[in-house]
């Protein structure tokens, strides 16, 4: 039996990206909501809820980028030059919010600056990621083994919409995370914010999903063609179900259910993307197998990944288990 290494790696990279989106999603979301949380103590509490985990979350982005270079160098080369602007913007924005975690505690006088740096960086990073996603979905011009378009091709009404959608979606993840991890005033504020963000997110998921088939007939065929509609149909139905649970949980003031429902929305949307993309790495231009490095490169790194990724996962799960419970403004977790 021979292993289909490119397919295994496509799955691993997809997993790293999904892990990044849901994990950094909620801590970016807390940053996005930061300007809407008033008062120093409340902001301390919100920031403390993500402080222990944010950089572990963000390392998945390095793993996604580094992994793409290692195993799908052609896709990495094409995507990074096609989406040059949004990716550079995202990286700079992540610098702004990343340093804020450390610098905020090194100054009293300048703290407001780092609060703004945290919020601004989070919003911009989320928006740039959404634009990147939208630009990828709408397709990239490829000539030979390189990007063949201009440096503004990524900009379209669709990619701006996905940018806004991701900011609001991350905001929803952040709000429901805060509902779960805080209490009192911050939690009340988070409920109010989530009640705005939840319907907005569901609406935007609907608009993006309905727009996508019109971008390219291959997407339309994938989603509406017979008989595969029977296979893919459950995904939108599950989205509706998760949306219902989310709204119900918020109305009933449940603490964990809204966060889990929001996470499921992201996972389902990601599965939807996977259905749209497969078997392409760069939609409708480069397939997974065409983008893959030779098998001996994939095998060489797979040995390390097979040992280390489970260890990282176990460690991460353990860390979240240890940090269970509500956070306080002062003294971290209690």
């Amino acid at each position: 039996m021979t292993l289909d290494l490119p397919l295994i790696w496509a799955g691993l990279i997809a997993f790293a990206v999904l892990a990044y989106v849901v994990l950094d999603g909620f801590d970016l979301g807390v940053g996005i909501l930061f300007p809407l949380i008033r008062g120093e103590a409340d902001r301390d509490e919100a920031m403390n809820s993500v402080a222990p985990v944010w950089d572990g979350n963000e390392t998945w982005l390095v793993l996604g980028g580094g992994g793409l270079l290692a195993v799908f160098p052609l896709a990495y080369a094409i995507i990074m030059s096609a989406l040059y602007v949004p990716i550079i913007v995202m990286l700079l924005a992540l610098v702004f919010r990343g340093v804020a975690f450390e610098f905020r505690w090194r100054t009293k006088r300048g703290q407001f600056l780092w609060d703004w740096s945290f919020a601004f960086g989070s919003i911009l990073a989320a928006f740039a990621q959404g634009v990147t996603l939208g630009a990828l979905v709408q397709g990239i011009a490829v000539e030979g083994r390189a990007y063949g378009g201009g440096w503004w091709d990524w900009l379209s009404a669709f990619s701006l919409l996905t940018g806004v959608a991701l900011v609001i979606g991350y905001g929803l993840l952040g709000a429901t995370w805060l509902i779960w991890k805080t209490e009192g005033q911050v939690q009340r504020r988070a409920y109010a914010l989530a009640l705005w963000a939840a319907p907005a997110t569901l609406l935007l998921i609907g608009v993006v999903s309905l727009w996508t088939p019109f971008l390219n007939s291959l997407y339309a065929a994938r989603w509406f063609g017979w008989p595969q509609v029977l296979l893919v149909g459950p995904v939108p139905l599950a989205v509706l179900g998760a949306g219902f649970l989310l709204l119900k949980g918020l109305r009933k003031r449940q603490e964990l259910a809204p966060f889990l429902a929001s996470l499921s929305l992201f996972v389902l949307c990601f599965i939807g993307l996977g259905i749209s993309f497969f078997p392409y790495m760069v939609p409708h231009a480069v397939t997974i197998h065409a983008a893959a490095a030779p098998d001996n490169s994939l095998a060489f790194l797979l040995v390390g990944a097979a040992v280390l990724v489970p260890m990282i996962l176990a460690y991460t799960a353990y860390a979240y288990w240890v940090f269970r419970g509500k956070v306080k403004a002062v003294g971290g977790y209690h």
Binding site: T59, G66, G67, L69, A70, P73, S81, I87, A305
Partner: peptide
């Protein structure tokens, strides 16, 4: 980790199969 692709995409495509896994080990 992204500058290789944004600024040196042809290099990334050509040298990626060799240097990519080494960088992957660095990250892991």
């Amino acid at each position: 980790s992204y500058q290789f692709g944004t600024n040196w995409s042809v290099f990334s495509d050509k040298a990626g199969p060799v240097i990519g896994p080494l960088m992957g080990y660095e990250v892991l």
